[in-house]
């Protein structure tokens, strides 16, 4: 009976950890298979250990080029969406104006729309306008779908901000610009950063909308998609593993730094 009691008490924990395993299993496989030396074109079956791919991460034609395109698009999309989204968020929280409902739904709808619908409709627009599909059209699309996420993240932060802080700044001789730069912006920064980070991740990883509007430009997800048809080089797994490790490392490092800083000051 003690075992049954123990099981009952920890059922949630066990189920949760199983889900976590389900979430992480593909990453384990991706990492493992980055050390594989496959026979044939596809890297789906384990053959033998090899460091070849790690030694030559750009050894596959066009892959690193597509990676660089994806990074550029992600950076610009992040910058664009963050600036535009932050402005909208401030307007929504700080001011009263007409058509607030319309603005809110126009921000909500892109998040409630299947990607394929946005992708297809945007393509009809570009075709109708006779636009040249490529880097610019991808960037336009990415800014579009990242915007709403930035607005949501920044809005949450600005809304939870005590309006008295800005009053205190104005009371202490800071004019409107100074108040914004010295108080509002620094306090809203975590929300803006969260929005920017989300934008980067969404843009970098987007496939469906990009696939419709890319023309002959090949982003990294499109390269992976193509390789699923033609043959998957091991280098894909190297990139995937490296990205995962960098992400975990950066988050852990920032956590350690911030907790140490708090300890020092306490």
């Amino acid at each position: 009976m003690p075992f049954v009691t123990w099981l009952k008490r920890h059922l949630v924990v066990i189920a949760g950890l199983l889900t976590l395993a389900y979430l992480l299993l593909p990453n384990v496989i991706v990492t493992l298979f980055s050390f594989n030396k496959p026979k044939g074109r596809f890297n789906y079956e384990w053959q033998q250990f090899s460091l070849d791919a790690w030694k030559q991460p750009c050894g596959v034609a066009d892959m690193c080029g597509s990676l660089s395109i994806s990074l550029q698009i992600a950076v610009w999309a992040t910058v664009g969406a963050t600036i535009l989204g932050t402005m909208i968020a401030f307007a929504l929280v700080r001011y009263r104006f007409r058509a607030r409902g319309a603005v809110n739904s126009l921000i909500f709808l892109p998040m409630a729309m299947p990607e394929v619908v946005m992708a297809a409709s945007l393509l009809t627009l570009f075709l109708n306008m006779g636009a040249q599909l490529g880097f610019m059209t991808i960037l336009i699309a990415h800014i579009m779908f990242c915007l709403s996420f930035v607005v949501t993240a920044v809005k949450a932060r600005v809304m939870s901000m005590d309006p008295r802080l800005e009053e205190a700044a104005r009371d202490l001789y800071a004019g409107p610009v100074q108040t914004f730069v010295r108080v509002t912006l620094p306090i809203a920064a975590p929300g803006i950063a969260a929005g920017a980070l989300l934008s980067f991740a969404l843009s970098f990883d987007d496939f469906i909308i990009t696939n419709f509007n890319a023309g002959s430009t090949v982003t990294f997800p499109m390269f992976v998609w193509g390789s699923a048809q033609r043959g998957t080089p091991v280098q894909i797994n190297v990139i995937g593993t490296a990205m995962f490790l960098v992400a975990v490392f950066i988050t852990l490092a920032s956590m350690v730094i911030s907790s140490r800083r708090n300890k020092q000051k306490a």
């Binding site: 991706v30 496939f207 894909i236 990205m243």
Partner: peptide, 11 residues
């Protein structure tokens, strides 16, 4: 959250 940073196609 971290798996997000590996392309979902790869995963």
């Amino acid at each position: 959250i971290a798996p997000f940073f590996t392309s979902f196609l790869i995963r």
